[in-house]
Nucleic acid binder design. Structure first.
Lengths: 226, 226
DNA sequence: CATTTAAACGGACCTCGGTCCGGATGGATC
DNA sequence: GATCCATCCGGACCGAGGTCCGTTTAAATG
């Protein structure tokens, strides 16, 4: 099964989908689809809002990003913020969108070992390292952007990553229940876990990365890397 | 190292503690210590509030448990609810307290395979099954009771369970970084994950339980059970 | 241009979690 | 039983997220 095909059939709504689906070229499968065409003023305000939000994060941390504050900083009405981004989570997620797309692009078409070309085990190891690094960089934003627990795993961005892991696992341990094992692996990369281990318990990122490598080795039954 | 000793030294605040610590008998290590002695009226109100909250959960689900509603239902002032339980999370957690204590007691002193007496690998399998069952029963409450992501893993109740898993892993894979592997295992049992897989994706609890057994086998390097 | 309309705007308004503080009260002390 | 004070009580109050709706405006059409 082709990667793009797998990703597109494994992503859609909850009940596992059926339609075999046609073709690749659908790179940004799981990200907020570009609002097709925004009216000029809307686009301008959207840009203003993102810029204002970014500034607020830089100045006061994610906690300082109040919807009213953002609206004010962008000289825009509060309602506009909600219409454009839905809710606070949506706004914060939009702030992370660039790096999320970058990661996805690297997974799908970047150079090995993250992208295609390397053996699946190595891709899986590189995946964890990349996500760990990315989480560490933007931890407060990542944490603040999480929706309520009941929905966090429904979020397209997360599902794309989980699907990617599932895809790699299918290659490595075809007899296992890869969706479940993928979920277990992803759990380790959850921003909340990274925050707990790294910030609260003071573990180094290197240690977390080693933990990931080890975990991958155990789950896939491959030996530790040389 | 004795279990109680391990649990008590591995639990305290973030920076890994040192003091070797004295002795066992400290069963309820990680649960909200009983407020020593409550004034008569305070105790009465506390009971009323828990009863009212329980009723509201039963009637309208966890989402229907508003602090003001609980206060009203218990014929008590809103401030009283917060003084007693700190915040909404505290109230919901108190509602889960009984079952949490029960689980802890079973782990520490219950019959095998959950309690001591069985081989560690079997205890670990039983642990997952027990947590999975418990989560499934009280999913909405478990989800609603979660504090903000940045703190959820600091919660004593969670730390006790994680420590338990770490303890078992030390016996099974002494050379691994057991704290990290334990965290990975615990991730699979997170209510958010259970909710996603069971409710949203429609996987059966049996399937999740099998996934756990398999995960344990992989992480510990023991074969699948007979 | 004039017209039309879907889309965007903005801020009043609502709810809910959480805080504060002046007043009431349980219970220990004498 | 009178006194005293730590504790508790209650509800006014605040801030932040989220909704609503009457008004404005971009831009497509003729």
């Amino acid at each position: 099964m082709l990667y793009a095909e797998f990703m597109s059939t494994s992503l859609p709504p909850l009940p596992p989908p059926e339609e075999p689906m046609g073709e690749p070229e659908l790179l940004e499968i799981g990200l907020a689809e570009e609002e097709p065409c925004l009216r000029a003023d809307a686009a301008r305000n959207r840009a203003r809002l993102l810029e204002a939000a970014g500034r607020l994060v830089a100045e006061h941390g994610a906690a300082g990003v109040t919807m009213e504050a953002v609206a004010a900083a962008a000289s825009v009405g509060k309602g506009t913020v909600f219409r454009r981004f839905g809710d606070r989570t949506g706004l914060l997620t939009a702030l992370l969108d660039h790096s999320a797309r970058q990661l996805q692009a690297d997974l799908i078409g970047g150079p090995p070992p993250l992208g295609p070309g390397a053996p699946s085990v190595e891709r899986l190891r590189a995946f964890g390292a990349a996500v760990l690094r990315r989480s560490a960089e933007q931890l407060d934003l990542q944490l603040a952007a999480q929706p309520e627990p009941a929905r966090k795993l429904d979020h397209p961005t997360v599902r794309v990553l989980t699907s990617h892991v599932t895809y790699l696992l299918r290659d490595l341990v075809p007899d296992a229940d890869c969706e479940l094992q993928a979920q277990a692996l992803m759990g380790f990369l959850d921003p909340a876990v990274v925050h707990h281990l790294h910030k609260r318990c003071g573990m180094s990122l290197d240690r977390l990365e080693s933990g990931w490598i080890d975990l991958v080795a155990r789950v896939t039954g491959t030996g530790r890397p040389a």
